[in-house]
Amino acid sequence: MLSPQAIEKIDYELTKYPADQRQAAVMSALRIVQTERGWLSKESITEIAQYLRMPEIAAMEVASFYNMYDLSPVGKYKITICTNISCMLRDSDVIVNHLKTKLSVGFNEVTPDGKFCLKEGECMGCCGGAPLMHVNNTEMHEFLTVEKVDAILEELK
């Protein structure tokens, strides 16, 4: 069951579209439920599809197409680090290696305590601040250095 809070937020998104276009809110609905539950299980996707009166498979198409949706658990903090060209030119490799060593995980792995998951991201459209990463799809951290990463991780504990 979608929580009343989630429904309220989805209903707000629905006000943006014509009444007969409920499916349009699926991008937001998936985000809202993912934020609330940490990731999107098939049950979550089913609930969203039913609420928006759209085929489940169409909701799944969307959830699997956009890579900020997580279809498996990602731990408490999902750290997505961009490795694309502008970040690569500014040594994102160093940050990636540091994170991998520090958290002892590879990309798409969750730390045993369920706290962190490391993901490789594509361009986030903030290349001026390279190298950069974001946490749980929302908090952007730019101009990363090893020290700055340590400080951020410290704060997340």
Partner: peptide
């Protein structure tokens, strides 16, 4: 909003995305 798909910068893909596809 988008949610992680470069292709949505293409205007018709973006329109599809607005429609929830």
């Amino acid at each position: 909003h988008g949610y992680g798909a470069y292709i949505c910068g293409e205007e018709t893909a973006l329109i599809e995305s607005i429609e929830g596809k």
